[in-house]
């Protein structure tokens, strides 16, 4: 029984990480119709930046996180303004080719700079200890992940559902032309959301080093999972991404623990099944 709970908590923590990776992808896909297969590579970039800041720069891990957030967000904004905005009206194939190319290049650069080996990052020891909750021993870092994921989700939900900025984004997701017609500067929304999405992916990457490890294959390793979350959650929906990420995280953890022979088979089966029944995802607005 306590095994079941520990594994579920693991799954929730994993799901929260996946949510951080996926939410930016979901919003950019819903808002800009941009299929960004380099999103996993952005997360990888954030993770390597954290490794450099903490291990070489000597910064404490928790202080490195906001720096990673700002840096990956800034890179995302620059990328959006310089290149990616030219791809919005191209077909899916062009977007896929460009973003796969970008992911290849980033992954190769990571191999050239850091080598193919696994990287670790120093995490404060008070975070790594075990915490006792209702008599259950749970890794403190898992709790930290769950809390940060929940806080991020709440902040994003507030931003999207209760602010003018969020209202503008929802308007542009639903109908871009009409939104432009009433004076919403959709261009500016694009930069901001792309930057936020990249920043969250970067922080997600930094947070995931401890749990998932980090090497240059990271750019593609979780890509399928990310796309699945967006597909199941529905592009452009934050709650959908959160639910889908938690669901997939928990299902994956449970099956890996209790039925390892099935491997990832179940997860992909779920994906295909959902897409057959609901091609627009469970809570999809558009796309």
């Amino acid at each position: 029984m306590s095994n079941l709970i520990t594994v579920t908590v693991d799954g929730i923590a994993y799901g929260m990480l996946l949510f951080l990776f996926a939410v930016g992808l979901s919003v950019t896909l819903g808002l800009m119709r941009f299929i960004n297969l380099a999103h996993g590579a952005f997360a990888m970039g954030g993770a390597y930046l954290a490794v450099v800041l903490v291990n070489s720069g000597g910064l404490p891990f928790l202080l490195a996180l906001p720096l990673v957030f700002i840096a990956t967000g800034a890179v995302g904004a620059v990328m959006e303004r310089s290149v990616i905005r030219h791809l919005y009206d191209r077909g899916a194939l062009q977007q896929v080719l460009f973003s796969i190319g970008l992911a290849f290049a980033l992954s190769a650069i990571a191999t050239i700079v850091f080598g193919p080996q696994q990287q670790g990052v120093q995490i404060p020891s008070w975070l790594l200890g075990r915490i006792s909750i209702f008599g259950l021993q749970i890794s403190g870092y898992r709790v930290f992940l769950v809390v940060s994921g929940a806080v991020t989700a709440a902040a994003l939900a507030y931003l999207f559902d209760y602010t003018l900025f969020g209202a503008r984004i929802r308007a542009a997701v639903d109908n871009r032309v009409a939104a432009e017609g009433i004076g919403i500067k959709v261009d500016r929304l694009f930069v901001t959301t792309f930057a936020i999405g990249s920043a969250l992916a970067g922080v997600g990457g930094a947070l995931s080093i401890e749990m998932l490890g980090l090497d240059p294959t990271f750019a593609f390793k979780y890509l399928t999972m990310l796309l699945m979350i967006v597909a199941i959650g529905g592009a452009g929906s934050i709650e959908g991404s959160l639910l889908a990420a938690l669901f997939l995280g928990v299902v994956d953890a449970l099956f890996k623990y209790f039925l390892p022979e099935a491997g990832s088979f179940v997860i992909f089966g779920v994906l295909v099944a959902v897409l057959v029944v609901r091609p627009n995802g469970l809570r999809g607005r558009t796309a």
Binding site: L97, G101, F104, A105, A108
Partner: peptide
Amino acid sequence: QLGLGIVLMLSV
């Protein structure tokens, strides 16, 4: 891999 990635991005 790096070259391939750059060629792909440019090809668009």
